[in-house]
């Protein structure tokens, strides 16, 4: 979380110090939200930075996503303002999800695992949002959409044999999680006001 905040401060400085020399402008956002599905709702945090040209924004983002499994998504961030005033927008994220610091759900009669590791997978988030223009460079965004993340847990058990090494039986448990995501974002743009 601290890293995300530091990155955001750095991003903010970059945005402030940039002079508009073309129709495009740098833009960044810091989001906090909630992911809710049929597993318990969990908070998520995201940071995105990129370039906006006319109604389009293209950037890269990362964050922390604790829904079911701890993970760090890294994604491409595309937004399109569908209203002339720039208040309504749709967005889409697509990328890869890196799991960290997770514990397996699998237990087979308490047997010791010879392999227990997590692998990431596809990550996406798509939805619609509304932008409230604040003073100067600042905007407040509220958005909601559908998000999907995949995490795999590879479990191996070594069963008895007469002499080592005994063969290992491996299983990949592939978890696909769909959830509704609501976010509140603080956006900073190099251009003041509506555009």
């Amino acid at each position: 979380m601290r890293l995300v905040f530091i990155l955001f401060i750095f991003l903010s400085y970059s945005v402030y110090s940039q002079k508009p020399t073309c129709s495009c402008s740098f833009q960044g956002s810091l989001s906090a939200g909630l992911a809710a599905g049929n597993s318990p709702a969990k908070p998520l945090f995201q940071l995105s930075a990129g370039v906006k040209s006319k109604s389009y924004y293209l950037g890269v983002g990362t964050g922390i996503d604790d829904y079911q499994f701890h993970s760090v998504p890294v994604f491409a961030d595309l937004r399109y303002d569908f209203t002339k005033s720039g208040e309504g927008f749709i967005y889409g994220h697509a990328g890869y999800n890196f799991p960290y610091n997770n514990e397996s759900f699998v237990d087979w009669f308490g047997m010791e695992r010879s392999t227990d590791k997590f692998r990431g997978g596809f990550y996406m988030d798509a939805g619609v949002g509304y932008r409230i223009f604040l003073k100067g460079w600042h905007r407040l965004l509220i958005s909601a959409g559908y998000s999907h993340k995949r995490v795999s847990n590879i479990i191996g058990y070594t069963f008895p044999c007469l002499v080592a090494p005994c063969p290992e039986d491996k299983n990949r448990y592939q978890y696909d999680m769909g959830r509704i995501v609501t976010k509140l974002s603080w956006e900073i743009s190099a251009r003041r006001g509506k555009h």
Binding site: A36, G37, N38, K170, R172, Y173, Q174, R179, I180
Partner: peptide, 14 residues
């Protein structure tokens, strides 16, 4: 809509 989305798990046993 949160009740409409689901988590799923499948086991790939090699």
């Amino acid at each position: 809509f949160s009740a409409c989305v689901k988590d799923s798990c499948k086991r790939l046993h090699s």
